[in-house]
Amino acid sequence: MTITPCSRTPNAPKSYATRSRELRLVISGAQQRAMQNAEASADAALAASLAEDLDGNFESVVRRFQDRLFTFSLRLTASREDAEEVAQDAFVRAYRALKTYPAERVRAMALRAWLYQVTLNVARNRLRKKRHPTVSLDGDDAGGARAARQAHDDPSVRPDARFEVKRERADIATLVAQLPDRYRSPLILRYVEGLKLEEVAAILKQPLGTTKSNVHRAINALREAMTESRRAGVR
């Protein structure tokens, strides 16, 4: 009798492919949890080091969070130029705030959630100013010209994106940024940044139920906006 590899045995309960897919799912779940734990403890260690020596360790904070805060800003503003300024302002504000906090408070901080919160505040202030631009009386429409230039510079709205996937991604990004703030922020935090609902609620200073229903409504609003934009043939 010859020994056949078990995946080829006809009476094997599951195919090799199925089992390996299941196995991968199991591993990825465990891995994800392990990664989240590792990340949380790295954040705690960083907060402790900031409490010890803010000036010596602040650079590590910027290095660790710059991609995340920049992406978060980019999804909020849909403009790379704005996003860089928002992220920059957020780090500067964070540094100045940390300077004034007592060491115990810094050590106990949920650094990641707090940084998202600071960024969100900076972005909101900025967007508020942008939506109500001051029009100068001498008729010089500098604000409008600047907005047009930004739209032109922003790769997410440039029409020459070559690949379908990329074009679709850019479209979703634009539509997300156009959602009203009460939907946009929870949607980005939950689904783009991948935070837990509890964390999102803490960042937005909302009851968990409110966040939950806003995330839910945000998804519906986004889906509606996508259908509409498809119908209008904007893509």
Binding site: F58, E59, L74, R80
Partner: peptide
């Protein structure tokens, strides 16, 4: 599709700008 929106790199100018603005 939303999760894919998270993979962006911060511009290289961000870190130097922050460090110089806070005096570090």
């Amino acid at each position: 599709a939303l999760r894919r929106l998270s993979r962006e790199k911060a511009p290289r100018t961000l870190l130097p700008a922050v460090l110089s603005r806070v005096g570090l």
